Simulated assay, not measured.
Amino acid sequence: MAAHPRKHRPPRAGRALLLAAILLAVFLWWDNTSLQVTEADPSFSDLPAGFDGCRIAVLSDLHSASFGPENETLFRTVAEQKPDYIFFLGDLEDQYRGRKPEYVTELADGLSAIAPTYYVTGNHEWAIGDVPELKETLTAHGVTVLSNQFVTLERNGDSVVLAGIDDPNGYADQKTPEELAAEIYAACGDPFWMLLAHRNNRFSSQYSKLGADLVFSGHAHGGLIRLPFTDGLFSHDWDLLPSHTAGLYEENGSCLFVTRGLGNSGATFRLFNRPEVAMVTLHRA
């Protein structure tokens, strides 16, 4: 009887490497597309009693990503948290993907149907251009755009001030954060006030010195890769071991909350750093 040649099989080590590569690819896909809800609970002695327990959904750095068809998963996840307000901190779009008017409309309609939604620009909106048109679209679909402006929020008979600034990539002659803070104090005395400002890396040097009780920022993408005992491994500019990339911080008597954000820009990816729907619940100390 003629001998049959044995079929070639990859060595065990090769099969193990192939399996490991497949598992890593699946994990990276999940790690970059599966929403994670996180909670933060800052306390303030001067928070008006009417805002004790106020829940704020903090979103940022979507970069034109979609979670579910027409972002249904994102909207459902936010709605399930029952926020009083939604703060969107910029980089709604991505400069490498360009302007998508229908995407902006879809997002504005979906979020504003859940809770009052407030928005400030990030650096990517200005890199794309046509920011006035973007702001008009958001406003027409129920989102309040804060362009170096402030408004009063009311809850349970009390009020606080909410301010928002355009990204520094905006117009060269735009109102400065310091000028906006001076306007708040001139108009409102010494209120409890919050600031929406896209760039986390300006908190120490500038935003913490404005007098705001609480600043909300994004921009850092959680440091891209999060390892134990680090505040993120890389900044958005690929600086090593950045600071102020996720969670709560305090400097100069001002508190900062940074969200890890939702999307990725260009060829970047997340590792141990899932897209975040951050819920900040205010407490009166």
Score class of each variant (00 low, 15 high):
S60C: 07
F257L: 03
V280Y: 06
I114R: 09
A197E: 00
P10H: 08
L210F: 08
N123Y: 02
L111E: 00
G218W: 08
A3D: 07
G266C: 09
H221T: 13
Y96K: 15
K175F: 03
G189C: 04
P132E: 02
V160M: 07
Y207Q: 05
G253W: 01
P191H: 01
K209F: 09
N201Y: 09
S34R: 14
M1T: 15
A172G: 04
P83E: 01
W126A: 04
G157F: 05
E106L: 14
C54W: 02
P101K: 09
G247F: 05
P83H: 01
P11L: 12
I184S: 04
W29Y: 15
G50R: 00
H221Y: 10
G142R: 05
F88M: 11
A187W: 07
L134P: 13
W193M: 03
L240M: 14
E39K: 12
R202H: 13
Y119R: 04
A65R: 09
H8V: 12
A65W: 13
M194G: 14
L233R: 05
H219G: 07
I86D: 00
H8L: 14
D130M: 05
L134S: 10
L233V: 12
F229V: 13
G53M: 09
L271S: 10
A65H: 13
K175G: 06
T73V: 11
D94Y: 03
Q149G: 13
H4F: 13
A285W: 04
G223Q: 00
H219P: 13
F272N: 13
T268Q: 05
I184P: 06
H198A: 03
E179P: 14
R9F: 14
D237W: 00
P116H: 06
A212Q: 01
P116V: 06
W238C: 10
F192R: 02
R97Y: 08
S43W: 05
P177F: 03
T38W: 02
G170S: 02
G14P: 00
F75E: 03
N201W: 11
F229Q: 12
R9Q: 11
T33V: 09
N264A: 11
K7F: 15
R97W: 06
V160P: 08
S208K: 03
A172I: 09
G263F: 10
D130Q: 11
F229P: 12
F216T: 01
D130C: 09
A220L: 11
L138N: 06
S204V: 08
L162H: 05
R199C: 05
N201I: 11
L134G: 09
H244P: 01
F216Q: 02
L24V: 15
G247Y: 01
P5D: 03
A172T: 11
A65I: 00
V26R: 02
I184Q: 01
I184R: 01
E80N: 14
R155Y: 08
F216W: 05
F192S: 07
T38P: 05
D46H: 14
Q149A: 15
S45R: 13
I225R: 04
L248I: 15
V37I: 15
T38L: 04
L214P: 08
L18R: 12
V78Q: 04
G189N: 02
E136I: 06
T139F: 01
A3I: 13
Y207K: 01
I184H: 02
N252H: 15
F51P: 05
L162F: 07
E136S: 13
P5W: 10
R9W: 12
A127P: 00
A57C: 11
H283W: 01
